[in-house]
Write a protein that binds this DNA or RNA. Structure first.
Lengths: 266, 266
DNA sequence: CAAGAATTGACGGATATTGCACATTTCCTT
DNA sequence: AAGGAAATGTGCAATATCCGTCAATTCTTG
């Protein structure tokens, strides 16, 4: 039994049952507990799993953002994929030719890339996958901020420098969110919040892309109050009360038609 | 059993099960472990697999290379790929654990990524493909400078800001080049020259990775004079006169063995 | 047929990995 | 809150693996 083979079996076991104990792995791999611990330590260092007392558990690794090489249509599995595409397309249509825009990380904003393919724009994005896709497919000028690339969130973020961001100014910024409530636009990840808040200051207009599944009450970090948004693009399945709430806060709401056939099974 | 036949069987076994042990291959091929190791070494030099302690594992990264890589990038990858792999591996071995290093863009430096996969490093790179590969495969902390992403060269470059670069300092910087002559390290692209010269200032030691095909007299832009280099890693096909020239300029020269039969490189 | 080159197998020092023992921490029960 | 049991990390010895070098064999070539 070899190291890599053990790793393969460990990952298989951990993804299968979500949690595996050291004792189970001892039995499966026929090695000493010390070796199991060492393996788990290495796998954790590579981000393949998370260690817990007595064993290991799977990491919710299905990254929200796509890796460079993956097909963007993994999103087909995700909820409201059709609506997100429609929203992204509508958002892309808002860009004037030759404009400078900011695109934040997120699954919905990622879908804008294909609709910006032939557009002549100047695009600042802190999302690594979006930058990669724009370079690969688009013809726009792509600018990224400097900083560390965070693996899980797939964004570039610098804790101190403002760098490029400080000398960039965009007419529009497009951003996604985890949820949208009267308390504001919500995000779960503090890393993303920091990135987004910094970028928001550099745009004249802030445009949020949120499909109708995002109109739920949820806890989390407040990214910004509603009144800092200029436009919200969503689909027509969004609850009317929420739309009214947005409008009364002075936000322009753009509705794209929702697909009827999209059952809420997934 | 011919050498080629063994190689075919090895690759088959490795792609089949993802990992193969030396013992398995001994049994399959009916040869001594020494021969198996030699075969694995050659196959690794061609990038067909990755050696691990006790055996070898499949390398699956070609899809990503194609997506992110541009034409000139892809084309250059094929020439002297065995030597480039060996040079890249040797370069990766120079990194102390936990160190901060800079990796410049280029085909040879790109190959360092797979040998840095499990290393615990802090890596600043202006090369977009290298950053992408490191995030995807590695566990190192990846830092990129801010700026525009140039499509053809696949590097991030900012004309004015020093940004992150100014507050980074590395023990070693690894760089490729178009050619190396008594006049200095040569590059053809002014965009790359600017990027590299700026990064060079931020490293204690500058290490050039140049395979033997780069020792030709050629015109171009002088990236830096020879004496600014600390180490040059090349293969043993490099002309002796050039090696002497480097040594007399005070440059440490590291030679990696060159493959004799380069015919099978594809 | 003979000489030369390439390939293969074997030996020894260096390196990496594994298992065990023990001090320390963490978790659970009382 | 306190005690005990389980779990964890680490040093150390044993084992296995890796790399370079050298002799023996096989293959090629003149």
């Amino acid at each position: 039994m070899h190291e890599r083979e053990r790793w393969r079996l460990i990952l298989e076991a951990v993804t299968q049952g979500r949690v595996v104990t050291i004792h189970d792995l001892e039995r499966i791999l026929q090695v000493s507990p010390a070796t199991v611990r060492r393996d788990l330590r290495r796998l954790e260092a590579n981000g393949k799993l998370r260690r817990v007392h007595g064993g290991a558990e799977a990491v919710d690794s299905d990254k929200k953002h796509n890796l460079i090489g993956q097909e963007p249509f993994e999103h087909a599995r995700l909820k409201n994929s059709q609506e997100k595409h429609a929203i992204a397309k509508r958002a892309a249509a808002l860009c004037d030719d030759g404009a400078s825009i900011i695109i934040d990380g997120g699954t919905t904003t990622y879908m804008m890339v294909e609709y910006l393919r032939d557009r002549n724009l100047q695009i600042l994005t802190s999302s690594f996958p979006i930058a990669a896709a724009l370079i690969d497919q688009g013809k726009a000028r792509v600018i990224v901020p400097g900083g560390e690339v965070y693996r899980q969130q797939q964004v570039i973020l610098s804790p101190f420098h403002d760098g490029i961001i400080g000398s960039f100014f965009a007419t529009k910024m497009f951003m996604g969110a985890q949820a949208i409530t009267p308390a504001g636009l919500m995000q779960t990840d503090p890393v993303l919040v920091q990135s987004e808040q910094r970028l928001m200051k550099r745009a004249e207009q802030v445009i949020a892309l949120v499909d109708s599944s995002k109109f739920v009450q949820t806890g989390g970090l407040i990214l910004c109050p509603i009144n800092e948004l200029d436009i919200v693009i969503t689909d027509s399945n969004a609850p009317k009360s929420a739309i009214d709430m947005l409008k009364s806060a002075g936000v322009e709401v753009i509705l794209v038609p929702a697909s009827q056939s999209n059952a809420e099974a997934a």
